[in-house]
Amino acid sequence: MDGKEDRDSRVLPRNSKRWRLFAFIFALASAALVALIVPLAVILPRPKYPKSFKSTVIVPLYIYPENGSSWDPLFDVITSRPSLNFTVILNPDSGPGSSSYPGDDFVPLIQKLNAYSNVQTIGYVRTGYGTRNITNVLDDVTTYSDWATIANATGLAVHGVFFDETVSEFSVSAAEYLTTINQAVKNATGLLSNKTVIHNPGTIPDTGLNVPDTDTTVIFEGPYQSYQEQAATLASLPLNRSDYSYIVHSLPTSMSKVNLRKFAYRLSELSEFLFLTDLSENYYESFGPDWRDFIGVMPT
Rank of each mutant, 00 (worst) to 15 (best):
D146G: 12
A148R: 11
T216A: 14
I181S: 00
A153G: 08
N182F: 01
G202L: 08
D164W: 03
D206C: 08
R132W: 02
T135R: 13
T217G: 04
I134S: 05
D213P: 10
I134M: 09
T154I: 12
Y129V: 05
P223W: 04
P201V: 05
E176N: 15
P212C: 09
S173V: 14
T149L: 14
Y129A: 04
N182K: 04
V141N: 00
Y129Q: 06
K186D: 06
T142Y: 11
A151E: 15
F163A: 03
E165V: 04
I122Q: 00
T207A: 15
T203F: 05
Y177I: 03
F162M: 05
Y144L: 11
T180I: 12
Y224N: 09
G160Y: 04
T214D: 02
F220T: 01
T143P: 01
I134W: 06
T207F: 13
T149F: 15
T214Q: 03
S168Q: 11
N210I: 13
D206L: 07
T131S: 13
I122L: 10
I219D: 02
V167I: 15
V185F: 00
I134T: 10
T196V: 12
N182S: 13
Y224H: 11
I204M: 07
G128S: 12
T166K: 03
A175D: 07
P201W: 02
S193Q: 12
Y144M: 11
F162P: 01
G123I: 05
V197R: 00
A151N: 15
H159R: 11
S173N: 13
A175M: 09
L192H: 07
V161C: 08
E221H: 11
I150F: 06
E165Q: 15
T142I: 12
T216C: 13
H199P: 04
L156N: 01
D146S: 15
I204V: 15
N210T: 13
G222V: 07
D215E: 08
T180D: 09
E165T: 05
L156K: 03
A148D: 12
A157G: 10
T135A: 13
V218A: 02
F220R: 02
A157M: 06
D140P: 00
L192S: 11
E165N: 11
K195Q: 09
L192F: 08
G155A: 09
A175I: 06
V211R: 03
G128M: 09
G155N: 08
I134P: 01
R126D: 14
G190Y: 01
D164P: 00
T166P: 07
D213Q: 13
A148F: 08
V167T: 14
Q183D: 12
L178G: 00
Q183M: 11
V161Y: 02
T179N: 12
L209I: 08
N194G: 12
T189L: 12
V158F: 04
D215Q: 07
S193L: 11
I181L: 13
L191G: 00
Y224R: 08
E221V: 09
T135Q: 14
T203K: 12
G190V: 03
A174N: 15
I181D: 01
E176K: 14
H199Q: 10
E165S: 12
P212Q: 09
G128W: 08
L178W: 04
V172P: 06
T149I: 12
N136A: 14
I198Q: 04
